[in-house]
């Protein structure tokens, strides 16, 4: 008797946990952050927390405007950030000299 109740409780508990997990997955997605219309861009950031910290140190900007710019061809985060410095495209965030493209992505991460 006792074992039957336990089995039922276990099955129900497991089902509940799976349901919560699916709901969370559906809301946050694989990154642990709420889904946004800009995830095609934000998902290029490996660790979003430092990018948000960096972005918050910049002036606020419209996520729509930023995303429009970053969705142009050639604005992939890794590739363009690597090219930025060689092309002289660096900017300052509270004194930190960073690639311009990274700054735009960080600004977007902080804006959503």
């Amino acid at each position: 008797m006792t074992s039957k109740i336990l089995r039922r409780d276990f099955v129900m508990g497991l089902g509940g946990a799976v349901a919560v997990g699916l709901a969370a997955w559906s809301y946050f997605g694989p990154t642990g952050y709420p889904k946004t219309p800009f995830d095609d861009l934000l998902n290029q950031i490996i660790d979003r927390a430092p990018a948000i910290t960096l972005g918050k140190a910049m002036p606020k900007a419209s996520s729509t405007t930023l995303s429009e710019k970053l969705r142009q061809p050639g604005f992939a985060l890794r590739k363009r950030s690597r090219e930025d410095a060689a092309a002289g495209r660096v900017t300052e965030i509270k004194g930190w000299v960073v690639p311009e493209t990274l700054a735009l992505y960080a600004q977007l991460a902080a804006a959503v």
């Binding site: 660790d47 430092p50 990018a51 960096l54 950030s81 965030i93 930190w96």
Partner: peptide
Amino acid sequence: DELGKAAVVATAQALG
């Protein structure tokens, strides 16, 4: 500081 650590991590990751 926290911003400095964030700048280093974010930049290093962006550069791979």
